[in-house]
Design a protein around this nucleic acid. Sequence first.
DNA 1: GACCAGGCACATC
DNA 2: GATGTGCATGGT
Length: 225
Amino acid sequence: MAGRMMAMRLRDVFDRLLAAYGPQGWWPGESPFEVIVGAVLTQNTSWKNVEKAIANLRDSGVLSPQRLSALRHEELAELIQPAGYYRLKARRLMNLLNLLMTAYDGSLEAMFEADMSELREQLLSVNGIGPETADSILLYAAEIPTFVVDTYTARVLKRHAWIEAEADYHTIEDHFESHLEKDAALFNEFHALLVRVGNQHCRRQPKCEGCPLECMLPESGVQEM
DNA sequence: GACCAGGCACATC
DNA sequence: GATGTGCATGGT
């Protein structure tokens, strides 16, 4: 059936990407809190810019929930300036910190002990935290097996016609979660590999030359997006 | 100099 | 409900 075939196929995609690129070592952060901060800062932004912003926070000694939430908006905005959208992201970080401080007394351990679907709803209720950011926090900071769907994930799947072009975030997420073993380490690596192949090949202007997924394209070839 | 990056909220029709 | 726009820096 389609389900069985897709299960093999998705796993096959993962195996190819892993063979081609090796483990990606995500999330590139030194602590769960740093992962959370990075998840907000990387919204529609290249990771390189985010690294500079996080380095600023670390150098200033404010990379903890208590220290960060004590900053004034202007101070935080200035520190994260290299990540772009800095006024917007300063507000979003403050919104998220407000949840962490008020509901969990600033303790990530306490937050991650909460019921997973309840925590997801709680994160989504924060202004500035959408599905991808929430899932990134759940998977990469809390190590809860939730599949993260980003631009590249959707693009790679739709381009190869592995999923309908109209599929929304939840549909794509559910696709992965229902066709793969629910394993945080697998979801972690798979998502990182999809970002890698997306960055390198499956862009708006496709560069299929040398792509490890090339021979898996349907007969019709790459579809316009 | 245009185009793009590991989104999201909000306005408008 | 669908579609468009603002947010901002830095690399290709």
